[in-house]
Design a protein around this nucleic acid. Structure first.
Lengths: 418, 418
DNA sequence: CTAGTTTGTTTGGTCGTTAGACTAACTAAC
DNA sequence: GTTAGTTAGTCTAACGACCAAACAAACTAG
């Protein structure tokens, strides 16, 4: 009695934010959806044959042939002469064509920029780290500096005969849905239209330029490159002086009404605890951010520029069994677990990924934090929520920024055929 | 250089939860999407003409005619002979056809059931409240009781020549994505396959039977019937002895990995605070749930069965200016504000709606809670998040359960033509 | 060398959308 | 009252994308 029995799919295109009213669909949408379906299938099952695709997706063999031809025209797929060795006609296998395109991500930090370029497969083509006076320069100078790096990356890609599909910039701060940075305390920015200014500075670059929060992009990186790829609901926590969360629900980044979701750092964890820069006390950031240990282990306070060596010192002392450090780490883990518990209760993700410097500290904090989280969730077993450590290293946000570009390709924004 | 410029729409069908792999699209999806587009357009702009629909949605006039004919066949739309009075040929206006269908929602509570039926427009056809030994009966008896009410509602609808499009049941507890109740402390339930058992008890009812958490459905009710209809991101908080959250992001309910999102009630708000039934201390539920006031204003403790008169007593004493009650309400508001602040920071919704008995207490708690929330959000002005009170009254979850049925119609699950 | 199997293309058909011509039904103005 | 102008909705032809089934191609097995 109900309509069609077939479970219709979502036409996956870029309905990013922006209260898009009733959007009708037509054939081009169907085509775009199915192209994306095939592309993603090959990404996850390469090498595979047209017959495999048809069998698994349910698309007709003829349709698959047509879609694959289109994707080959667009240089997104490639036939590998390789065939299998079993009964029946051998199959011509398909793989992603890594060579003609690049997705670029840049991560802005207080004292350095990280630039990453990946090919369609997500394989790293380039990974630069440049010092950068983010904390001291004016926003205008900073944009110019970022644009400079972007230009050099693009030139390099062009020299390698790759077309850049897009550029995304990760910023530690509040970024609205238009890619405008509203507040970035560590950089001292306020209302900087980063995406717009950067596009201007690059003079009609021919590819989309976007900006987003570093935690959001970290989440995207985990979603695409992490070990939990298939997961539909995932939270990523940045582990720096500040703590931010990137929230993926039902397979997509959720940015909230104004794009300001994920501000977990200033949730009160320890009432009356140590003061925070935001003017309140006991924020997650002060009791589970890196400052919580560094302030008490490193004489003379914390400077963002010296973060890495200072963390290394903490790690050394922990390895040596320094009881002060171990106690501090235990408290940090407990507080972090409280924060993760809040997220697990409220959002019930399959996995919470700890990023940034939490990775280095994992041996001393992970178990404790997970225990704390589990003891605080109402749903049995934490509602199936696991707490894990990122394996992506420091450039996670830059990698996520590049992933953001790949996502838009996977969602149907394909480059035109030659 | 990028592909098609037209912003493709999401084919809106039921990809509810369930890690749906790559779902290809075909014509039926396009048709379903466009039928839904027209249906929703008429819902929001009735009465309107075919020409209006074509002009606003961008669909071709011929297509709109075909879609409208289809919807009229399915008795979802109706022509009102009414025409306008301006230059040119007069238009035949279209409205939703309220008469042939009904969507049914039932809310299970500790001591009563609420049943609601609405027509396609969302207009209430029926609203029953029956006492119900939810707290004391066995799950089997309870299911039988719910089935009994459901049968009577369906009979009534059938007598009125209405076809029931679906039944959804709201339960205060953890409901997984299959409509199975995992834990419902107040009802004493554990692992009850409510949706399945109910469908069985109704013997192949010919319409889908679903179950969901009451907070989730409250959120849906607000989304459809509340004053913030257009909003894409909304949180609904139930105000009972327990406190639960329903989370709508990007226009859809987000249930989390296992369907257990929204368990805000057991987030620690006051460390070392009063003990909670869950075994911990200072949970939102004990410091901002109704128990927080009732335990100290009503002698002899709180019984769920007597909730309403007891709350009324609190309201009376607050109106009379009783300083004890006012102080308790102020503390409750402060704690509630802390909880809302967490949500606002983490999720950044446009609006947080307080439901249940919070509505009656609003005059004494709303301002204080909002102030507390605003003081705790990092984004300026709470990231644009407003705190408001529900206007839907007690049956909100039941209404939301019915809305759940209408949603599935709006998403393309249309009844077959006659 | 034949039978069997599997791949991928070709052919014909269907469905739903589109553009544009066309009819219908009205207002306004002479 | 006629004519011009305007808007609504239908009709026709064409197109684009998918599907089913037949078919050709290329292999293994015996």
């Amino acid at each position: 009695m109900m309509g069609p029995t077939r479970n219709g799919a979502q036409l996956i295109t870029n309905t990013q934010g922006s209260a898009s009213g009733p959007q009708p669909a037509d054939f081009t949408d169907v085509r775009a959806t199915n192209l994306a379906v095939v592309l993603r299938f090959v990404r996850e099952n390469a090498p595979c044959s047209r017959a495999d695709i048809a069998a698994t997706t349910g698309l007709n063999k003829a349709t698959v042939s047509s879609l694959v031809a289109d994707l080959i025209d667009r240089r997104l797929l490639r036939e590998t002469g390789l065939t299998e060795n079993r009964v029946g006609r051998p199959a011509t296998m398909l793989v992603l064509d890594g060579s003609p395109y690049a997705a670029v991500g840049i991560e802005v930090n207080v004292d350095y920029l990280t630039a990453v370029a990946v090919d369609l497969k997500g394989e790293e083509l380039l990974s630069w780290r440049r010092s950068f006076p983010g904390g001291s320069a004016s926003p205008g100078q900073a944009v110019a500096g970022i644009a400079g790096v972007a230009r050099r990356v693009v030139n390099r890609m062009t020299k390698d005969a790759r077309q850049v599909l897009g550029l995304t910039v990760a910023v530690p701060g509040l970024v609205d849905l238009n890619g405008s940075v509203r507040v970035a305390p560590n950089l001292g920015w306020r209302d900087v239209d980063l995406a717009g200014d950067l596009a201007k500075a690059l003079r009609d670059p021919g590819f989309p330029v976007l900006a987003d929060n570093d935690a959001n992009l970290g989440a995207l990186a985990e979603l695409r490159f992490g070990p939990h790829r298939g997961v539909q609901n995932l939270i990523y926590l940045t582990g720096e002086i500040g703590v931010g969360a990137g929230i993926v629900l039902d397979g997509r980044l959720r940015r909230g009404g104004a794009g300001f979701s994920g501000e977990i750092g200033h949730i009160e964890i320890v009432p009356g605890g140590p003061p925070c820069l935001c003017g309140r006390r006991g924020c997650l950031e002060v009791v589970a951010g890196l400052g919580a240990i560094l302030a008490r282990t490193v004489p003379g306070g914390v400077s963002p520029e010296e973060l890495e060596p200072e963390i290394d010192e903490v790690v050394q002392r922990a390895e040596a069994g320094d009881p002060t450090v171990l106690a501090l780490l235990d408290t940090l883990a407990e507080n972090l677990g409280k924060g993760v518990g809040i997220v697990a209760n409220l959002i019930n993700p399959e996995v919470v990924v700890l990023g940034g410097y939490y990775v280095k500290l994992a041996p001393w904090i992970l178990a404790r934090a997970e225990q704390e989280m589990l003891s605080r969730t109402l749903a049995p077993g934490g509602g199936g929520c696991r707490l894990v450590v990122s394996g992506l290293g420091y450039g996670a946000a830059a990698l996520g920024a590049a992933a953001r570009v790949l996502d838009s390709v996977d969602s149907g924004r394909l480059p035109a055929p030659a």
